[in-house]
């Protein structure tokens, strides 16, 4: 294989891995934009989405790509419950409380999942496993292309929802000015629930796509991707979806470069080295305007 081929392949994997991060980061941005809330337990929703898809798949054998919608719907519900009973009561009591609350949620979801599904590693086989299609000089598994298509479709759907529907426009209004939104009669608490639920359903989509592509999973799968998604949105700027996409791709490249040059052990640490350097230079993130 020539060097150009290798390079293209690495870019392609960066795109594929980036899809998961982009969905997670977009969900986080959506929630943060509206509620100004951070949820460090966001990765647990990815894990729940993955397990819900896997469970339905094991029970019925339906094509897992179709289950993604069920899984997303389920997570809207779970997200709404978490928002209503955990985050709403502490809204406005300080950012630290949200961080501490997330730790409690991590304990509950990870170990609750382990109680229900055990903490053995599991896997789901895609019906398209083993099918590759030629793209230029490389052979790409069909699953990876499907994942990119699904991610793009979900993001387009989200874009249309935010720009064309009343609720979507109310969400954007709340995000721009919460008090103003209240003044014009928007029920901001309802908007909070909806955006939290939608953020969670994007995580569920990420979880589903991740396991369908042949990744094996266990209840602790969500933490690291979520933490990286946070690093990405800090780098890319809070609330900026293009920033999240560029940040996700850059992070993917930096990680793979570090694994290659410094050894695999540096793969996680490098994200944080970059994060710290960026924050030292610009305490508000690369593209962030005012931080929060």
């Amino acid at each position: 294989m020539d060097n150009m081929g290798v390079f293209l392949q690495i870019i392609f994997w960066g795109l594929y891995a980036g899809c998961i991060y982009i969905l997670l980061a977009t969900g986080l941005n959506l929630i943060f934009g509206v509620m100004k809330t951070v949820n460090f337990a966001h990765g647990e929703f990815l894990m729940l989405g993955a397990y819900i898809t896997a469970t339905i798949f094991f029970l019925t054998g339906i094509n897992p790509y179709l289950i993604i919608l069920l899984s997303m719907l389920a997570l809207i519900g779970i997200g709404a419950v978490v928002e209503r009973f955990c985050f709403r009561p502490i809204l406005g009591t300080g950012k630290l409380n949200e961080i501490f609350l997330s730790i409690g949620l991590i304990y509950i979801f990870q170990n609750g999942a382990a109680m229900i599904w055990t903490d053995e590693w599991q896997s789901v086989k895609s019906p398209y496993d083993g099918i590759t299609i030629p793209v230029g000089s490389l052979f790409v598994p069909l699953d990876y292309i499907l994942i990119m298509v699904f991610t793009a479709a979900i993001l387009c759907g989200l874009y249309l929802f935010l720009n064309r529907t009343t609720i979507g426009m109310q969400m954007r209004a709340t995000s721009q000015n919460r008090k103003g939104a209240m003044l014009v009669g928007i029920n901001v608490e309802r908007i909070d629930i909806i955006s939290f639920g939608m953020g969670c359903s994007l995580a569920a989509a990420a979880g589903t796509l991740w396991i369908v592509s042949g990744q094996i999973f266990n209840p602790y799968m969500g933490s690291i991707p979520a933490i990286k998604a946070f690093a990405i949105i800090i780098l890319g700027g809070l609330g900026s979806i293009p920033g999240a996409i560029i940040g996700g791709l850059l992070m993917g490249l930096a990680e793979n470069g570090a694994a290659f040059l410094l050894g695999g052990i540096w793969k996680d640490a490098i994200s944080f080295v970059i994060l710290i350097i960026v924050l030292v230079v610009r305490p508000t993130g690369l593209f962030g305007e005012k931080g929060e």
Binding site: L262, G263, F272, P283, G291, E292
Partner: peptide, 25 residues
Amino acid sequence: VRLKEWFLAMVTFGFAIIVQTLTVS
């Protein structure tokens, strides 16, 4: 010192990972 709440949480969290990585490499 110049960071707020959850930026600081992220940096400290990452710092523990970096220190562990340095320790074993």
